[in-house]
Amino acid sequence: MSFWSRTPDKKQKRGYWLPLLMIGIVCLLVGIYQEQLTDIYRKAVMICLECIGIG
């Protein structure tokens, strides 16, 4: 039960956003280097019939 009741005691963590942002930027750069954005693009320009509930 302590897990459920602990939620209200959480506090804002100021300053944590910057390292998280840095992690994001590094991940994105690695993704660009590995051409993963091209994979995203390749999927995104085709109509996925399953995704829209037809196929």
Binding site: L21, L29, I32, Q36
Partner: peptide
């Protein structure tokens, strides 16, 4: 990594 980058 690319998607994780956007999410972070």
């Amino acid at each position: 990594f690319g998607v994780l980058g956007f999410l972070f």
